[in-house]
């Protein structure tokens, strides 16, 4: 494993299964996975089998990011590669995202997102570094309160 470029950790008062579901189920993702620049939500679409393709889609089906499912261990670990649609064939430019979900004390779940191999694509590095904290904060709010954030695409 190469040294990660970014690590994000949040503690959520919920269950590992609910965090897992929120990552892979478009009906949940659209309630919290906001575009960092505002605007429409993103969802993750795949059959989540190792080797399968996954797509980070807008609600109109436009694909912003895609990649391959590397590892699926519900509800504790999901590993995917991360690429622009134009560079899907060029695996040397793909980065890698790992979601680690583990029970923590006091009914909390620790969710750690690591993003590695971004040095292959400095522009992507800039783009994602602002995005993950927003996505994780919104996810925490959704799972703890049951409500989408005000201002998120489906809140109103």
């Amino acid at each position: 494993m190469t040294k990660p470029d970014f690590v994000y950790v949040t503690y959520i008062a919920t269950t590992p299964e609910k965090v897992w579901q929120a990552l892979i189920d478009p009906a949940l993702a659209r309630q919290y996975w906001a575009d960092p620049k505002g605007g429409c939500a993103r969802v993750n679409v795949s059959d989540w089998q190792p080797g399968s393709r996954w797509e980070h889609q807008r609600l109109d089906g436009t694909v912003d990011i895609l990649g391959k499912v590397v590892e699926t261990t519900p509800p504790s670990r999901l590993v995917i590669t991360w690429a622009r649609p134009t560079e899907v064939e060029d695996e040397a430019k793909h980065s890698r995202v790992t979601f680690d979900i583990e029970p923590y004390s006091d009914g909390l779940v620790r969710l750690m997102v690591t993003h590695a191999d971004l040095e292959r694509d400095p522009e992507m590095l800039k783009g994602i570094s602002g995005g993950w904290p927003i996505v994780l904060s919104n996810l925490k709010t959704l799972l703890e309160s049951g409500h989408a954030l005000p201002g998120s695409p489906v809140a109103s």
Binding site: F6, V7, Y8, W132, P133, I134, L136, S137
Partner: peptide
């Protein structure tokens, strides 16, 4: 690692 989530 710096974890910016609480700052957000």
């Amino acid at each position: 690692y710096l974890n910016p989530v609480p700052l957000h």
